[in-house]
Design a protein around this nucleic acid. Structure first.
Lengths: 221, 221
DNA sequence: GATACCAGTTTGGTATCCCAAAATGGTATC
DNA sequence: GATACCATTTTGGGATACCAAACTGGTATC
């Protein structure tokens, strides 16, 4: 694999994994040294990650995008539009086998599963469901929105009960989709997204002090 | 302005203006010479234009994205989702003054207006309307979709009557939005987008031979 | 005539160098 | 102690050099 893709992938993982905190300054030379690549692939990676919203410009330099509560709310609205559209599309040509695969993803999580894995599967559920629509642009929209939400969701304080409820909602959405009941599926997905957004923003707003203490920049709604 | 932004802007204009045809090969060295910049800004520009879907990789090299009828149909579906969501949002806080500005854009076109200008205003109408939603992500979604549709719409064979009908639809959408009638506005916008898509794809499919004769790569639906 | 093969050229990927602007840090001044 | 000022360093933007892989055109072989 080329250096360019390597730097991009590794830097993205460090940002999403919060190994580099939201709001931290980045210098091209530091990245260069950190990954043993020269500046050309480093700059290519930064340009890509900028379009993903993971890094941004801070004057002349680069910054890991802070957690922005107002932005999170906007993303949730965008996500609802594209994900519901994708799901409605999927309902028009529901494929039982494909839905089985996604349901198996949910089943793969139990009480012994690491929290990190629940997190990842929770994202992939929505991404893979959107992929079933067959529409590349709706799919990308959902995937990009989930990427932008990823760090915030990881920071969210979630209890076991909340995760269980989310999983139940996922299953209900799948069930309606399997039946091709677009209205029911859309209704449940909308509720899921809105609820998810509210819990997320509330949790982060409440924990803002703690997040700042960890050195994470959090911008208010 | 920096070279990077310069190269990006000029190259984008050449591609959107069809000065470089869909499907044409690009070499970094040619661009370098054409705009008097070195490869560093050229590379940055290509990476950016790649995310806009205007250029793509062809093996190791670069290609101006061909007109892809299947893709155009998918983009229209995506666009409908985000643009309708944006419009519904706008209807919840309709601002008469802002709508006046957009209506003035429509008024600025008359029988003496160049076709190129009609084309530009037709795009900007949708983009500016989406901006009123106040949601950055819905706005970007609409803007990016319009960018991707731009070349195809320019190639579309459209008569005066079709343009007149489009303008009437635009005005009806604005009127419903001004009244805050979200359902009516959404219904009219959906119809406008679907009709627009059908005419576009039909026109291009019919004229495929002519387009190929001009050296434009057109991929079938 | 078709094909396999080879030398020369082109091209994108990468590394490195240079520069102007911005950030930094220390110092003199009040 | 606060502040204005200046020398130094750092940093991103750009230019260029180098390389390996891909492409090209021609040639020899069958």
């Amino acid at each position: 694999m080329s250096q360019m893709q390597n730097v991009e992938r590794q830097l993205r993982e460090m940002i999403l994994g919060l190994e580099i905190g939201p709001g931290e300054k980045l210098t091209e030379r530091w990245i260069e040294g950190r990954f043993g690549a020269s500046r050309t692939p480093v700059r290519a990676a930064l340009l890509r990650l900028e379009t993903e919203g993971l890094v941004g410009r801070d004057g002349r330099g680069w910054t890991v995008s802070p957690i922005n509560l107002a932005e999170l709310e906007q993303i949730a609205v965008y996500r609802e539009a594209v994900e519901v559209a994708a799901l409605r599309l999927t309902c028009t040509h529901a494929d039982g086998n494909a839905i089985d695969v996604i349901e198996a993803m949910l089943d793969s999580c139990d009480e012994n599963t690491a929290r990190e894995e629940w997190h990842r599967v929770g994202m992939d559920f929505h991404i893979e469901l959107a992929r079933l629509s067959g529409n590349e642009f709706l799919f990308r929209g959902v995937r990009d929105a989930m990427t932008r939400l990823s760090r915030a969701r990881w920071l969210e304080v979630r209890d076991e009960a909340a995760l269980g409820r989310a999983w139940a909602e996922h299953r209900a959405i799948l069930a309606a989709t399997r039946l091709g009941d677009a209205d029911e599926a859309a209704r449940r997905l909308s509720a899921h997204i809105v609820g998810s957004r509210d819990r997320l923003v509330t949790s982060l707003a409440n924990d803002r002090r703690g997040l700042r203490a960890r050195g994470f920049a959090v911008v208010a709604a």
